[in-house]
Structures are given as C-alpha cells and as structure tokens.
Design a protein around this nucleic acid. Structure first.
Lengths: 249, 249
DNA sequence: GTGAGTCTAATAGTCATATTATATTACCCT
DNA sequence: AGGGTAATATAATATGACTATTAGACTCAC
C-alpha cells in the first residue's frame, strides 16, 4: 500500500495547481488587501507565462475557495477574509506552508477542542462495533515502537479521522479530515516518539478514549480526548520554548 | 444599505455558476457515485450546450471544492464524500436547495452545539467592548416587533456571526458564517416571530448570552448559547410534527 | 507462459484568437 | 443639473488546434 506522503505537500503538480498555490499563499499572506483588485488577467498571464485559459481556471479555483470574485469590467476583487474557506485541504496546506505561527496554532487548537470532544461523545452514543474495532486498530498501530515521526503522525491522524467517522456525522468527519491534516504537520517539530515515556502516555491517552466510547460514556470520552489534545499542545509549547531558548539552526 | 437577499439563493448567475450548481446538486444527491467517472467533457458539453472553456471551468470549480479530480486519460473521477467541502457557502446552498431533511439538520445542529458554546466562551474570555456593543445592537434589532420571518432570520444570523467575530478566532468566524447561513434558511419553515411569547423568550435567551460574555463568565456564556440553540431546534421539531400531523399544502 | 518493454488511442491539459456581455465612465441632450 | 446614452475596458464565452499523459493492448525476448 503506497501511502507515501499524505502529509507532505506534494510537489510538481500541474501548472494550474502551482499557480493557484502561489497566488493562494500570497493572498493568505495579505499581499493583496481585501477589497482591492488582483492584477488584471494580462498582467498575471505575463507574470506566470501561461495561457489565458490556465490563468482563468486558476482564478476560478480561487473564486471557488472564496478568495476572490470576478466581475466583467471591474476585474477580480479580493474578498474579505471572512469568506475564505479555511476548511479546505488546499487552503490549509497553503497556510501551513506559510508557517505555523503561534496564533494560527492557537486558533486551530481552539477549534479542535470544540469539535473533537463532541465527536467523541457522539461516537460513544452510536458506538458501532466496526468503528470500535477500527479505533482499536489505530491505537495498536500507534503503539508500535518502530515509528518515525512521520509514520507516528499518520497513525495519529488515522485515529482522529476514525473518531470523526465514528461520530456518524458527515460534517464532523469532513472537518476532522481537514483540521487534523494541518495539526499533524506540526509533528514535524515535536513528536511523542522522541521520548518513550511520552509515547506511552500518548498511546494510553488514546486507548482511554476508545474505552470510554466502547462503554458508551459520552462525558468520559469527551474528557479523554480533550486530555489527548492538551498533551499534544503542551508538548509543542515545551518544544518551542526550548527551541527559542537555544535555537539549533 | 441593500441587504436584500443574503439568504435567498440568488438566481440568474453566469452559465458557469448555474451549471456548477446543477452538477454540484446532482453530486450531493448521489447521482454520480464516488469512485466512478463523471460524464466525459464532450458529453457534458453536449448536455449543457456550452463551450469547452466553460465546461472546464465548471469542473475546476467542482475540483476546488473537493468533489472531483481530473486526470489526463482517466477522466474526471468523483471523490469520496469525505473530501467534499461541506463548509463552503456554495456547497451548503446547494445542499439546502436539495432539501433540509432531518438527518442533515441533525448533523448541522450537532456541529453547532459543538462550536458555538466554545465560540461564546472564547468571546467571554476576550470580551472587547466593541464586540459587546455590536452584540447588544444585534439583540436590539432582534427585539423589534415589526419583523417578518426573513428580517428576523437576518437579525438572528447577524447575532451568531457577531459571536463568531467576538471569539477572536478567524477559523470560528469562518465556520460560523457558513453554518449559520444554512441554519437560518430553516426559519423559512418556522420562526419565533409567529408567536409573541416565543419571540420574547428567544430575544431574552440571546440577551443572556451577551450578559454572560460581558461578565466574562465563560461557562455561563456557553450554557446560555446552548439553550438558544436548543430552543430553536425544539421549535423546528414541533413545527415539523404539526405539519406531518396536518399537512397544510 | 511470463514479464519487461513499446505502441496506441483516449482523454484531459494547454494555447491562441475571436466574439460577446456587462458595468463603468463620460458625454450629451433636454 | 439630471437622466439617458454611447464609448470603453474588462471579464465571459466560444472555437479549434495542438500537447501531454497514461491505461491498456500488444510485442517480443527469455
């Protein structure tokens, strides 16, 4: 099974995707202030050296994600950030590539702390045996001792996606798949596998979530997953402080 | 201020948007099973009687929203629903147009019950005076006695958007704007303005949320907004039962 | 037979150009 | 001055040609 780089921001896509990523990143960075116009079609064509067709399809992509809106005779206007679809795999990938600053991580964590306990509680309500089997399997994968940061991150991702599925709510599931992907990217900086004690604690935390779900204990499940999230966050904080104190590169 | 039809599903857009809406709706309805191919470009061109340019841009839009993925020589394949961007204003609008069945409303409510209390709690944490003033103003608007269903729905929408803003979390704000829009559409069926007592209770419920936020009482704010949500849900349930019992049209 | 290489054809991707629709601006007429 | 109208800039749509990619068939050596 070739599950190479689900997390890695894939490279060498079509010219379309590359340009969309470039402009999307620039928009996220604020290079084109909301309410103003993007450069006109001819300018962008000149800049990227592509045909009008490609340029237009890129703009359609950005429009579909809520970044811009094109109107005849007025040009392509940048919309207010409120309308941007942050919950989009591409957008989040662009955002991640821009850097995981503290503010962004904080926002993401807040959303996660809001959603995941609810998802876990719902899972405890429905608790189909298939879902529980899948969750158990995820925990088993996480417990393996031969993990790289990357492989552990993927196992962790699978677990949280499984929670989303087990909630039985397609909207939850959809959000989970997007948010977690971004979150897991942070494992590049700090990972439980760096420390056996941390690893064990993390695995046990996840196992506790499954236990609570299987027992149908909604409240317990919610609390357990909250604990898992907070452990992860504190690890990131610690790592950051340490890096700030003695920057390695 | 021309705030005519923020909720109304606008009509007579470009051929592009119309076709995207049609295909998007069909996808949501399940007319094209995940994993299968969409009709080929020529077929779709034939069906909609548009140029290849337009057809391709429509496909780009659907691809940008996660519905399909196009590859040379294999065609345009429908992706698994997990990847669909439900949290997209257009997608949700299509979904709403498809009908607000019980399952969907339930999913939406579950997400709302997860997110809004957190947003309110965060708002209580930060509680800028500007945000509180804005919220108070929203409540004042809701309290007006000359509301139509539509105008009340918009005032309600504004309130929940303001909560999202006050949370200080751009991701929360972004989700709020999408979810609420769909939710508010349900006011077409049942609205607090139909019953003065209901109206008053609803307004008081919202005011209580603002009070809690102003006082910095996170827990209280979360509980208060949960109550507001649940009142709305029970109204919808009651209306539905009544309609089922004695269908009016 | 089996497997590695090669060819073919189907399909989306890209390009270039022309025409049309629409909104802004400025102008003109009353 | 006001309201309609024409000029104009810009994106929207159309068309047809060419390119790139790759699934699937086909070939051939072993």
């Amino acid at each position: 099974m070739p599950r190479l780089s689900r997390l890695a921001l894939e490279r060498a896509k079509s010219s379309h995707d590359q340009i969309a990523a470039i402009l999307g990143t620039e928009l996220l960075r604020g290079s084109y202030p909301p309410g103003t116009n993007m450069p006109s079609e001819p300018e962008l064509i000149e800049r990227f050296q592509v045909s009008r067709t490609v340029m237009r399809e890129v703009m359609k992509t950005l429009a579909a994600k809520g970044f811009v809106i094109s109107k005849t005779r007025v040009g392509t206007r940048v919309r207010e950030p409120v309308y941007w679809n942050y919950f989009d795999a591409d957008v989040l990938a662009w955002r991640v590539r821009l850097g995981l600053d503290d503010d962004f991580m904080k926002s993401l964590t807040e959303v996660r702390r809001a959603l995941e306990p609810s998802a876990a509680a719902l899972a405890a309500q429905r608790r189909s045996s298939a879902d529980i089997a899948r969750l158990r399997d995820c925990v088993r994968q996480m417990a393996r001792t031969d993990h790289t940061r990357q492989s552990f991150a993927e196992a962790d991702l699978d677990f949280h996606l499984a929670i989303g599925s087990a909630s039985g709510n397609p909207l939850m599931r959809s959000m989970a798949s997007v948010i977690e992907t971004a979150l897991v990217a942070s494992f590049a900086h700090s990972s439980p596998v760096d420390d056996p004690a941390d690893h064990e604690a993390t695995v046990n935390g996840h196992a506790a979530v499954v236990d609570a779900i299987e027992a149908g204990e909604e409240r317990l499940a919610a609390e357990a997953i909250l604990k898992v999230i907070d452990i992860g966050v504190s690890r990131i904080d610690i790592t950051r402080k340490r890096q700030r104190g003695a920057p390695k590169r």
